[in-house]
């Protein structure tokens, strides 16, 4: 073995997460769902805790399943509340986000006083801890990530239409509701896969920032998606590198700081370049 297995796990985990969340985040940003990811990440917490309470196991697949179920419930509540009430989407998201997370915290604190529960690893879902990734988790991340990427590649044309003109898609008889569920499901998978690496709070940046950084530089969806994957995985790699070399630096926050720098650099550079073009060529 050439490199230490911890190093390999952290680097691989951050690479997978960066690219997968970059790709799915692109669609979230284009569909103006920048904060849906944040809501789902918070809503995953009670699912993780309940899955652990029911199974007594901390196997990555079981916790991911729990997170997915509660994320899915939250998503259904969110969309049906938006359909039936006059409330603003932001209002409903804030309510869903805080109450599901609160439920998760309450359950977690209930577990903590029960002497039989070994909690190690569960609280990592809050802020994430890439350094504690084990090979099992990385393998699960890799498989689920690959499924996401393959499905996006297969349904690329459909997702494209859904992102830019859902009304037209519906009028031409596409199964819009099914496609939307698939896309949301994939988003959810990319979120729960990232939770133990970067945690609940920072997950939103993993989804949104790569797409925001890539957007001004490409006129095609393919370009933007690939660009977001590159930005996400590069920042993932850089963050992992810094946290492995500098002591006391947590991985998730390091990645997110790199992502923030990437967004600002992208927007400023783009602005500069545009300013230098002759007026008639400016878009």
């Amino acid at each position: 073995m050439l490199i230490d297995s911890t190093v390999r796990n952290v680097v691989l985990g951050c690479l997978i997460l960066g690219s997968v969340s970059g790709i799915l985040g692109t669609f979230a940003v284009l569909r103006r769902q920048g904060l849906v990811g944040d809501t789902l990440a918070h809503a995953a917490l009670p699912g993780v805790v309940i899955a652990f309470m029911l199974s007594g196991s901390k196997a990555p697949l079981i916790l991911i399943l729990g997170a997915s179920v509660s994320g899915w419930i939250a998503m259904s509540l969110l969309s049906s509340a938006l359909r039936t009430t006059r409330l603003d989407p932001g209002t409903v998201m804030a309510v869903v986000l805080s109450s599901t997370f609160g439920l998760g915290v309450a359950l977690l604190s209930w577990l903590q006083k029960s002497p039989t529960a070994s909690l190690a690893g569960l609280d990592k879902y809050l802020l994430g801890q890439a350094a504690s990734l084990v090979s099992d988790q990385v393998a699960v991340m890799g498989i689920l990530g690959a499924v996401c990427v393959i499905l996006v590649a297969l349904l690329f044309k459909e997702f494209k239409l859904l992102s830019f003109d859902p009304v037209f898609a519906k009028s031409t008889g596409w199964p819009v509701a099914i496609l939307e569920s698939v896309l949301t499901g994939l988003l959810l998978v990319s979120i729960v896969v990232g939770l133990n690496t970067v945690g609940v709070v920072l997950m939103s940046a993993m989804l949104v920032a790569p797409a925001v950084a890539a957007r001004p530089w490409s006129r095609s969806l393919t370009g933007m998606t690939l660009g977001a994957a590159v930005v996400g995985s590069t920042c993932g790699l850089l963050g992992a590198g810094v946290s492995l070399t500098v002591p006391k630096v947590p991985t998730g926050p390091a990645i997110v700081v790199f992502l923030g720098v990437a967004v600002v650099a992208s927007l400023v550079l783009r602005h500069e370049r545009r300013a230098r073009l002759p007026a008639w060529r400016r878009p």
């Binding site: 940003v29 769902q33 920048g34 990811g37 932001g90 940046a205 949104v208 920032a209 925001v212 992502l259």
Partner: peptide
């Protein structure tokens, strides 16, 4: 979109 800006 403002949501994306907040998310970053």
């Amino acid at each position: 979109h403002a949501d994306s800006a907040i998310g970053v």
